[in-house]
Amino acid sequence: MKAIMDLIGRICISLIFFYEAYDSIVYAKATKALMTEYGVVWRQDLLFYGAIVALVLGSILVLIGYRAGLGAFLLLAYWIPVTLIVHSFWNDAPELRRMESIHFMKNIAIVGGLLSVLVNGSGKISIRRLFATFRVRNA
């Protein structure tokens, strides 16, 4: 049962970041405008495309369970700065503070899930385990 729950958890976390990458690609112009609004103007194209690569590659690695720790690290390297920049509720007006603090806490929960994958690995149901247990017979 634990192996299945590990897999379901990895699927759920990966879906969040696959959607984030999809949304960033489809709405690239709006995403770059939002980056400018939040003051992220230094090498914006590099950061934008680097984030998409980190999101897609990290999501794939976490999902399939091959080098899941590396995938979780890539996603954390994206998610933590974005959370601190976009959901900085301590800088917001009082009427926005409550909602932004809720979004901030949800993102912190996602960080916790990624840290769990980083520390515990991918579990029994993963490509890595499949490679480790697969034996090639000599013909």
Results as ranks from 00 to 15, higher is better:
Ala3Gln: 14
Ile4Phe: 15
Asp6Ala: 09
Ile8Asn: 07
Ile8Gln: 01
Arg10Met: 03
Ile11Asn: 02
Cys12Thr: 11
Cys12Ala: 15
Cys12Tyr: 10
Ile13Glu: 01
Ser14Ala: 15
Ser14Leu: 01
Leu15Thr: 11
Asp23Leu: 10
Ser24Asp: 11
Ser24Met: 13
Ile25Trp: 10
Val26Tyr: 08
Val26Phe: 08
Tyr27Phe: 11
Ala28Gly: 04
Lys29Gln: 13
Ala30Gly: 14
Thr31Trp: 11
Met35Pro: 00
Glu37Leu: 11
Glu37Gln: 12
Tyr38Gln: 06
Gly39Met: 00
Val40Ala: 12
Asp45Ser: 11
Leu46Tyr: 12
Ala51Asp: 06
Ile52Cys: 06
Ile52Met: 01
Val53Ser: 06
Ala54Phe: 13
Leu57Asn: 05
Ile60Ser: 05
Ile60Glu: 04
Val62Tyr: 01
Val62Thr: 01
Ile64Phe: 02
Arg67Gly: 01
Gly69Asp: 06
Gly71Phe: 03
Ala72Lys: 03
Phe73Tyr: 11
Phe73Met: 12
Tyr78Glu: 08
Pro81Cys: 07
Thr83Pro: 00
Leu84His: 10
Leu84Ile: 05
Ile85Ser: 00
His87Leu: 05
Asn91Thr: 14
Asn91His: 11
Asp92Leu: 09
Ala93Met: 11
Pro94Val: 02
Glu95Leu: 07
Arg97His: 09
Glu100Gln: 12
Ser101Val: 01
Ser101Thr: 08
Ile102Tyr: 14
Phe104Ile: 01
Phe104Asn: 03
Phe104Ser: 01
Phe104Thr: 03
Met105Gln: 08
Asn107Pro: 05
Asn107Gly: 02
Ile110Gly: 07
Val111Gln: 05
Val111Phe: 08
Gly113Glu: 06
Gly113Thr: 07
Leu115Asp: 00
Ser116Trp: 15
Val119Gly: 01
Val119Ser: 13
Asn120Ala: 10
Asn120Met: 10
Asn120Cys: 08
Ile125Gly: 05
Ile125His: 08
Ile127Val: 14
Ile127Tyr: 12
Arg128Glu: 14
Arg129Tyr: 09
Phe131Ser: 04
Ala132Leu: 09
Thr133His: 15
Arg135Ser: 10
Arg135Asn: 09
Arg135Leu: 12
Arg135Ile: 07
Val136Asn: 01
Asn138Asp: 15
Ala139Tyr: 14
